[in-house]
């Protein structure tokens, strides 16, 4: 038996992304030295939207890349063998403030892998984390710098994020049960 409850609507998501875009500019005192890296797969469109907002607010074009962390996972060999998606970071991250973007923050293992991967590309000045939803249950000492929505969940629930670019609509839904 599956139960679903919508947590965020299209308008909610839009407001959140605008708010986070402002927060990033505020904390970094403008857009200079910023680069965005979206985590495959739904972090990628989120990163693009934030970069687009910042372009509208400040007129600045910000480099935006994609990162797939498959090869950095700590559970490879445990019967999961995802086909890796494209990693495309075609700019220098040395000395930059890297804004890492993902849809859901859960155990923190994906972010751990992403940090390792990013550092293989160079030594950024800082790495800051944006997540649309933080659902708790961290297994590693990792936190987000910008959170769209804190959503207390239990382990038997899952958070389903849909975005127009990947799924045709914008919504965040809490799914209970199998």
């Amino acid at each position: 038996m599956q139960e679903k409850a919508q947590i965020l609507s299209e308008n909610d998501i839009d407001r959140i992304i605008k708010r986070i875009s402002h927060e990033i500019l505020e904390r970094n005192r403008g857009s200079e030295s910023l680069v965005f890296i979206g985590l495959q797969k739904r972090g990628v469109p989120l990163a693009k939207r934030i970069a687009e907002n910042i372009k509208n607010f400040e007129g600045a074009e910000i480099e935006t890349g994609k990162l797939d962390i498959t090869f950095y996972r700590d559970d490879i060999g445990k019967n999961i063998k995802p086909t890796a998606q494209i990693t495309d970071i075609s700019f220098d991250i040395e000395g930059k403030n890297v804004i890492l973007v993902d849809d859901v923050l859960y155990t923190g293992r994906t972010v751990r892998a992403a940090l390792d991967a990013i550092i293989d590309f160079g030594r950024p000045k800082s790495i800051q984390l944006v997540v649309l939803v933080d659902r708790g249950h961290r297994e590693l000492p990792i936190r987000a710098d910008y959170v769209g929505k804190n959503l207390p969940t239990s382990h038997n629930e899952s958070v389903e994020v849909k975005l127009k670019e990947t799924d045709g609509e914008d919504s965040v839904t809490l799914v209970v049960g199998e």
Binding site: T70, F71, Y72, R73, I76, A84, T87, A117, D120, F121
Partner: peptide, 20 residues
């Protein structure tokens, strides 16, 4: 074949190594 593209990208990086 579908996995090869990702590995091609790794070979083009400065640090050509992943911990997989």
């Amino acid at each position: 074949l579908s996995n090869a593209d990702s590995f091609l990208e790794i070979s083009r990086r400065d640090v050509k190594k992943v911990p997989t």
